[in-house]
Simulated scan of single mutants.
Amino acid sequence: MWTKIVPVTALIASVTLTGGTAYAAPTTPVGGEALGSRGLVAPPGVEHPPKTQAKSYVIADVETGDVLAAKDAHGRYLPASTLKTLTAVTLIPKLDKDREIRPSRNACNQEGSAVGLSVKATYKVDDLFRALLMASGNDAAMALAETNGGLAKTMRDMNAEAKRLQAYDTVAKTPSGLDKPGQSSSAYDLALIARAGLANPAFREYISTKRANFPAPKGHYEISNHNKLLGRYKGMIGVKNGWTSKALGSFVGAATRDGHTIVVSIMRHDGYFWDEVAKLLDWGFAVRGKATPVGKLVNPAPDVQAAPRASAPAAHVTPAAQPPLLDTAASRQDDSTKLVGSLVIGGGVLFGLVWLGFGIRRRRRARSRS
């Protein structure tokens, strides 16, 4: 939950992720005190939002950032494929959409939902983003991660982007959203990430496409958007839905009417949520501009320069070059123990250098006296 986030943890984690830029998290819930509540937070003077089986949700005005209502906004849950929004927001600016690639066998064999990538076919990055956001392809997610320089680099990039957006409830462990221990997001963060994506024309184009031709080893086949409200709900732009047996249903979606855009995010819904989401969107449009906001979707965090690290040169050592014992120990560490280890090792290196310098000066003085 939000209470687990403290400024020092967020600051150090972001330094580790970005290698030079730190983003300091506030001590209060991001977006306002009221959003720290586990229960319903609704504005006075208007009818409460429609009921939903979702454990957590946020309804917000995209233009102003006003959070109109929320329930357990910062509750951390498994995001399932809604995490692909962060993958897209992170990688769209980094990858040339016209670049052509042949996916690895590892990418093609990803479990869960897939668009059907083949090692025998060539794809543009543009195709892979459509597969990611329209057809929820886990194979496309891995192919994009590998195109970005590998899985490890992509996870660092995604987590750094989450911190930049102040999505501090979000910890990405996979580019696809497949369940993995330690992975999390929140309804607040999903709305925040979606808002960032909606500001990118390419992201908007991918999420709003209903059908598209997709390359195959011989010719093309058609893929369709998994968002059931696209084309059915008036003004629906799109965004992303997700489901796994552990995460249950999750969704983040945005619609525009009369020049105003409302975003709704839900998490941990154990049934058919599409009609409930439509009613939440209707409520958002009805109260927008009339209700007192209960919180705010914040803007990206300002950059804060990190202090130089004494152990910086060691960052060039790859895991494969480590002794087996250290490699095994590193694989068992969590983020906190890795940080402590880095500080201890960095401090040890610094102490050794200082002691060496002191010894050299003593020898020089001894020579000058003789």
Score class of each variant (00 low, 15 high):
residue 55 K to R: 15
residue 57 Y to W: 14
residue 57 Y to K: 13
residue 60 A to F: 06
residue 60 A to L: 06
residue 63 E to A: 13
residue 63 E to P: 03
residue 64 T to P: 10
residue 64 T to L: 09
residue 66 D to V: 02
residue 71 K to C: 06
residue 72 D to L: 02
residue 78 L to D: 00
residue 78 L to V: 00
residue 79 P to R: 08
residue 80 A to Q: 04
residue 81 S to C: 10
residue 81 S to D: 01
residue 84 K to F: 07
residue 84 K to I: 01
residue 85 T to N: 11
residue 85 T to M: 14
residue 87 T to Q: 07
residue 88 A to T: 05
residue 89 V to Q: 08
residue 90 T to I: 03
residue 91 L to F: 10
residue 91 L to E: 04
residue 92 I to C: 11
residue 92 I to V: 14
residue 98 D to G: 11
residue 102 R to D: 00
residue 102 R to N: 09
residue 104 S to G: 12
residue 105 R to F: 14
residue 105 R to V: 09
residue 105 R to A: 15
residue 109 N to F: 05
residue 110 Q to H: 12
residue 112 G to L: 00
residue 112 G to T: 03
residue 114 A to M: 08
residue 117 L to A: 04
residue 119 V to E: 08
residue 120 K to Q: 13
residue 121 A to S: 11
residue 124 K to M: 04
residue 128 L to I: 03
residue 129 F to W: 10
residue 129 F to V: 01
residue 130 R to H: 14
residue 131 A to F: 05
residue 131 A to H: 10
residue 132 L to G: 03
residue 132 L to A: 05
residue 132 L to C: 06
residue 133 L to G: 08
residue 136 S to Y: 12
residue 137 G to I: 02
residue 138 N to M: 02
residue 140 A to N: 08
residue 140 A to P: 04
residue 141 A to N: 13
residue 145 A to L: 05
residue 145 A to S: 14
residue 146 E to N: 08
residue 147 T to Q: 11
residue 148 N to Q: 09
residue 148 N to S: 15
residue 149 G to V: 12
